[in-house]
Measured scan of single mutants.
Amino acid sequence: SKNWSEDDLQLLIKAVNLFPAGTNSRWEVIANYMNIHSSSGVKRTAKDVIGKA
């Protein structure tokens, strides 16, 4: 699996709070948010995000 930096983990926590349970396509939305805002340049999929959340 791809390494997660501390910044990416913080971003994931922020995204999970921004897009609560019940959000349509929640994990796709979170992955997309991370891909836009992450400084690491690593592209995450919904599966990556679910695996780490």
Rank of each mutant, 00 (worst) to 15 (best):
A46T: 10
L11K: 02
V29I: 10
I30R: 00
K43W: 07
D8H: 04
N3Y: 13
F19R: 01
S40I: 03
S40R: 07
S5L: 03
I50F: 12
K52F: 06
S5E: 15
E28Q: 14
S39V: 09
N32W: 05
K14F: 13
N17R: 13
S39E: 15
I50Y: 13
G22V: 07
I50M: 15
L18S: 07
D7Q: 14
V16D: 05
G41A: 15
E6D: 09
E6T: 09
K14C: 07
V49G: 01
Q10V: 08
N3H: 13
S38P: 01
S40W: 03
S1H: 06
N24C: 09
I13M: 14
S39P: 13
S1P: 04
S40Y: 04
P20I: 00
L9K: 12
F19N: 02
V49W: 02
V29Y: 09
G41C: 10
G51H: 08
S38F: 02
L18G: 04
D7W: 05
S38E: 03
L9P: 02
W27F: 08
A31N: 02
D48H: 04
G51S: 13
S39D: 14
L11F: 05
I36W: 10
V16A: 09
T23A: 07
A46C: 11
K43L: 12
N3K: 05
E28D: 11
A21D: 12
L11R: 04
K52H: 10
G51L: 09
N35A: 05
V29L: 12
G22H: 09
I30V: 13
L12R: 02
R26E: 04
D48W: 01
N24Q: 10
L18N: 10
V29N: 09
A46L: 06
N17K: 12
I13N: 11
K47F: 08
I30S: 00
N3R: 06
D7C: 01
L18V: 10
L12P: 02
Y33T: 01
S40C: 08
F19K: 00
K52W: 13
L9H: 11
W27H: 04
W4A: 03
K47M: 10
N32P: 01
L12E: 00
V29H: 11
P20V: 02
P20L: 01
Y33F: 11
I30T: 00
E28A: 07
W4S: 03
T23H: 09
W27R: 02
S39F: 05
S25C: 12
S1G: 15
W27M: 06
K14G: 07
W4M: 12
S38I: 00
I50R: 15
S5A: 02
K47R: 12
I30W: 01
K47Q: 14
L12S: 02
G22S: 14
N17L: 08
A53T: 07
K14E: 11
V29D: 15
V29P: 02
E6G: 09
L12K: 00
T23F: 14
S40Q: 09
A46D: 12
S40K: 06
A31M: 03
K52T: 08
L18T: 12
D8T: 08
E6P: 15
L11Y: 04
A46P: 11
S38W: 00
V29Q: 15
E6I: 06
F19M: 04
V16G: 07
D48F: 00
G51Q: 12
V42I: 15
V29C: 11
G41Y: 07
L12M: 08
G22K: 09
S1V: 12
A31E: 01
